[in-house]
Amino acid sequence: MSKGMKIDPPSGKIGVVVPGLGAVSSTFIAGVEAVKRGLAKPIGSLTQMGTIRLGKRTENRVPAIKDFVPLASLDDLVFGGWDIFPDDVYQAAIKAGVLERGLLDSVRPALERIRPWPAVFDKAYVRKLDGPHVKKGANKMELAEQLQEDIRQFQKQHQLSRTIMIWCGSTEVYIKPGAVHQTIESFEQGLQQNDPAIAPSMIYAYAAIKSGIPYANGAPNLSADIPALIQLAKEREVPICGKDLKTGQTLMK
């Protein structure tokens, strides 16, 4: 029988760093900021509006999940991220056109404070997109190290107790798993040698895991779900998850 896992109660601020501050991310962040201020309800959020039944149906014990499970408050979330365009989140949300202008204006100061860091980007992996706000480095390993430094500075600036990364960038081209993806050693060698089989999302995933922060992939492309990064995540006890979780935003829009 497996031993139970001790889960510490939430405390302090949680950093949410997002590669890609476009339509998906700006809608997500603006929505959270609106909910914080009582300007909207978290429709569709299992943790915020969902309930859980305890005992028999006749006992009528149906608490909200957020009251039953020790989860952090939305007020504890602090957002940051990367993008190939320098627009702040307010500008990005206006361009995306998902939410009403009036709602965005009501949370404008909070959104304008979130300005993206230069992104790790290569047009070869997202052929219909290009932008000027990108990092430069001698190789992909150096780019990964720059991402880790962004994370460290963000954590220090906001005195964060925990941080997570959610990939919300554009879907990358199909990549077939190969030798470079099989072990940590081969993957890190590939980063040093600019292996074309290592896409930007993999560089972000690597940076997150090396930084000790959970990584969730919001697109269908190959990302953290390769043997090398799965192995690294297990060794460092860092959760990884996700596969195309952002499609619903497109349907809503």
Rank of each mutant, 00 (worst) to 15 (best):
S2N: 12
K3Y: 12
G4T: 15
K6S: 14
I14T: 14
I14E: 07
G20T: 08
A23N: 01
T27K: 01
F28G: 00
F28S: 05
I29N: 01
A30W: 00
E33A: 02
V35I: 08
P42A: 11
I43H: 08
I43G: 00
S45E: 05
L46I: 11
M49T: 15
M49I: 15
G50F: 10
G50N: 05
E59M: 12
N60L: 15
R61N: 13
V62T: 15
P63T: 01
K66R: 15
K66M: 13
D67G: 09
D67R: 12
V69W: 10
A72S: 11
A72M: 10
A72N: 10
S73W: 08
L74E: 10
L74G: 09
D76I: 11
L77P: 01
V78P: 06
G80N: 04
W82C: 06
W82Y: 05
D83N: 09
I84W: 07
F85V: 07
D88Q: 07
A92D: 04
A93E: 00
A93G: 08
K95F: 04
K95G: 08
A96E: 02
G97W: 03
V98W: 03
R101E: 15
R101K: 15
V107I: 01
P109G: 05
P109D: 07
R113A: 13
P116S: 08
P116R: 09
P118E: 09
A119R: 04
A119L: 06
F121S: 05
F121G: 07
K123I: 09
Y125S: 06
Y125T: 04
V126K: 07
R127P: 12
K128R: 15
D130A: 13
G131A: 06
P132V: 13
P132K: 13
V134S: 04
K136A: 12
K136L: 14
G137A: 10
K140T: 04
M141S: 09
E142C: 02
E142D: 09
L143F: 08
E145Q: 06
E149C: 11
E149P: 12
I151T: 08
R152K: 12
Q153F: 00
Q155P: 02
H158P: 00
H158C: 03
S161L: 09
I164P: 06
M165S: 13
C168N: 12
G169P: 08
S170K: 05
V173G: 12
V180F: 06
V180N: 00
Q182I: 05
T183N: 08
I184Y: 11
L191P: 09
L191C: 11
Q192S: 11
Q192F: 00
Q193P: 07
D195T: 00
P196V: 04
A197K: 13
I198D: 03
P200Q: 02
P200F: 01
P200E: 01
S201F: 06
M202I: 06
I203W: 09
I203N: 04
I209N: 10
G212M: 02
A216D: 07
G218P: 03
A219Y: 01
P220H: 04
N221V: 10
D225G: 05
D225W: 02
P227K: 05
E237R: 14
V238D: 05
G242Y: 02
L245T: 10
T247W: 04
Q249C: 13
M252I: 15
